[in-house]
Structure formats: C-alpha cells, structure tokens
C-alpha cells in the first residue's frame, strides 16, 4: 500500500485551471457549428439540408444553429458550404427568463443527485469525468450525493422514458427546497433523435421545471461544469442569440 501512496503523492497535478483561467487544451470538446455568413443563399440552404437533425436554419445568406439539436455529427463541417466550427464549451444557458435566486450558502457547497432517465452511457461517463483528476469538481464545491434527501440539484440525462417518469418525479419530490434542476445533453433538452415517441417525453421540462440546460451530445465535462457554475451564479450563461466571440476554422 505504501507503493500506492508514493505513486499518488508523486503524480503531478493534472487538474484544469478552469474557471479561474480558460482551458484551451485540445480534445476537451467536440466543438460546435456557429452562425455562418455565406456569399450566396444557396450555400446557406445546402448547409441547412446537410444537418440530419434540423439544427441549422438558413436565413438568406446566413445559417443559424440551434445547439440543443446539434449532435456533433460534423456533416455540416464538410463540403463546399461548410459551417464555421468553434471549439468552445461554455454552452450552458438558463432555461427561463427569470434570474435564478441562488443563495449564498450554496455557492461553495452544492450537492447533486444524478438521474439517468434514458440517456446513453457516454453522457454518464462524461459526468463521471467531473469527479476525476482532470476536472475535479470537488475543488469548486460540487459534490455528487447518492440520496435525493441531501441533494440541492437534480442533474438529469436522457429523454425521460415512460418507465423512468415516476422515478424522476419521486426523486424530485424527495429533494428539500430550495432545489434546482439541470438538464444535461440534448436528449434531456429536446429529446433530439429519440423523442417525441411512444416511450419518451419530448424533454425533461415537460415533466419537471428545468433551470439550466447544458446542450451537447454528449456535453463535454467542462460544459457540464459550466452549467453548475451558471447555476450558482459564478459564470455567465451562454446567450443563445449572441454571435460567437472567437472563431476557429474547422
């Protein structure tokens, strides 16, 4: 066991400096297409039709992106009418117009209960990454708890299958107030490729109220972390309509 102790003590720190500094490591995000201006409207139409989930809409010369439907298939990044691609991760947004009434005590200690309502295992894996060395959300005061009784935040993945609906509601009801809900991943936000259907509701928000949405398929760990920071008022939310700040070519 001493060997393991020495091994642990001698390993260098890998944890990201985010949110104190930006993280520009490569491979931490699949990136996303952003609103793109084309020289003629036909190109914008081509980009829109290339999208298999209808996340891109063409308005004359420009093509806009609905990130909550984008599945990062990268079909729009290829060909002549290629959308601009941006490798960022600050994707979380508040779902209601009202500002969150987050109270001071939760800023440094927020307990999260995760409910998988029919997601794939990749998004669970990305949430797990948050507690692992590279992201280590504990340093920011975020903790996963196994019981809803101790939870302040309900983190939900998946399109809410009909078998999970009651379990989700009961978990939500079992949480003490004040409580918040984060919908993680596009299937939780819009159902995306799996809903609406006979088994799945179209979104978590049709079952319980959602405060923060983290789009992505699956959202990378830093996007989920950004969601938690947005919830506690420690980072600005992404404004869905604002044009991107920096642009990185595909």
């Amino acid at each position: 066991m001493l060997g393991w102790f020495l091994r642990g003590a001698s390993s260098r720190i890998r944890t990201t400096r985010y949110p104190h500094e930006g993280d520009s490591s490569t491979g931490i995000t699949p990136g996303r297409p952003v609103a793109t201006q084309f020289s003629h409207s036909r190109a914008a139409d081509t980009a829109a039709t290339a999208c298999p989930t209808g996340a891109i809409t063409a308005h004359e010369h420009s093509a806009e992106v609905d990130l909550s439907r984008c599945v990062h298939c990268m079909a729009c990044s290829r060909g002549e009418a290629a959308m601009k691609w941006q490798n960022d991760f600050n994707w979380a947004s508040l779902s209601g117009p009202q500002a969150l009434k987050t109270t001071q005590p939760f800023k440094k200690s927020l307990h999260i209960r995760l409910v998988d309502s029919g997601s794939c295992d990749a998004v669970i894996q990305e949430i797990k990454q948050l507690a692992k060395p590279y992201y280590n959300m504990h340093r920011l005061g975020f903790f996963i708890t196994p019981t809803p009784r101790h939870a302040d935040v309900l983190m939900i993945t998946g399109p809410v299958t009909s078998h999970m609906r009651l379990a989700l509601k009961k978990t939500y009801d079992a949480m003490p107030r004040p409580k918040w809900v984060i919908a993680v991943g596009n299937c939780a936000i819009s159902g995306c490729v799996f809903a609406p259907s006979f088994m799945a509701a179209s979104a978590v928000s049709s079952v319980i109220p959602v405060d923060v949405q983290v789009p992505g398929c699956p959202p990378p760990p830093l996007a989920i972390l950004h969601g938690l920071l947005v919830l506690t008022g420690r980072a600005p939310a992404m404004q869905p309509t604002t044009p991107p700040v920096t642009e990185v070519a595909s």
Partner: peptide, 27 residues
C-alpha cells in the same frame, strides 16, 4: 490511486479521440 491513474488514461484517450477524429466518442 489506481482508479485515478486509469481515469487519467481514459481522459487522455478521450482527448486523443477528439484530436484525431473530432469527437471524444468518435461519433
């Protein structure tokens, strides 16, 4: 400690996938 060691390898493999093919899970 071993769990953290493998976590680091897993994240590095995920980053490698994204750097190589664009997506962490190779979609």
């Amino acid at each position: 400690v071993p769990s953290a060691d493998i976590d680091i390898m897993e994240e590095e493999a995920l980053r490698l996938s994204a750097q190589w093919a664009g997506h962490r899970y190779l979609y």
